[in-house]
Amino acid sequence: MNRPMIEIRGLRKSFGTHEVLRNINFTVDPSGVVALIGPSGSGKSTLLRCINLLVRPDDGAIRVGDAQFTFDHAARPPKARALAAFRARTGMVFQNFNLFGHMSVLENVMEAPIQVRKLPKGAARDLAMTQLAKVGLADRADQMPQTLSGGQKQRVAIARALAMEPEVMLFDEATSALDPELVGEVLATMRALAQAGMTMVIVTHEIAFAREVADRVVFMRDGVVVEDGPARQVIDNPTQEATRSFLSHFHASPA
């Protein structure tokens, strides 16, 4: 058995008095693709944001690759620089794209390689063009993000994250803000990424996509993992009543 790429132990997080994550334990194998599903407010987005520490856990341990952070609500919070170095190893794609509005498509993708990885401009440009070509948008490099469709924006966001050459990619409802006809192009990009062996954690409402692309599905409700297993098994034959009831809202047909 390989050492997992992502390992989470005893994770807890509260916002005020509301406990959003209650003792989460969770691993993802190298090149594994895990879909996190569950009703809104179940904590799945918070869990995803804990993996790159955009949300700082109260307690628990998080390891991505060789980098580990242990949290204890009494301990001092880690330094900004250490957090930044940790986040540089994971890529994240957001529901609302969050492309930098004052930069062209190419500059969006080049920015972090230059500023964070300290690549020379020429190398960063080549890297950015390669990533843009991978998501099929090399011809849009000089456009401003505002001129793109939602699906194109999200593909640029994926290219931007990939330009950091992350060990892990996190997707936070990457298709939820898209018009239905634009969902397919983003899912296709994600599927290609999974097939290329990227370790991925995907928060999604696209149950059919989760069933097809993920090798594991984790169902969460009220801050706990209710069911965790092979994708087809969890979606086609859930063992928990809560999972069954949630999935009955989606008429998940085999993709």
Partner: peptide, 16 residues
């Protein structure tokens, strides 16, 4: 806040 988060997620420090 999404703009800031996107920067942080790419490994930028809050100052950067």
């Amino acid at each position: 806040t999404g703009q800031r988060e996107a920067g942080l997620a790419l490994g930028m420090t809050p100052t950067l």
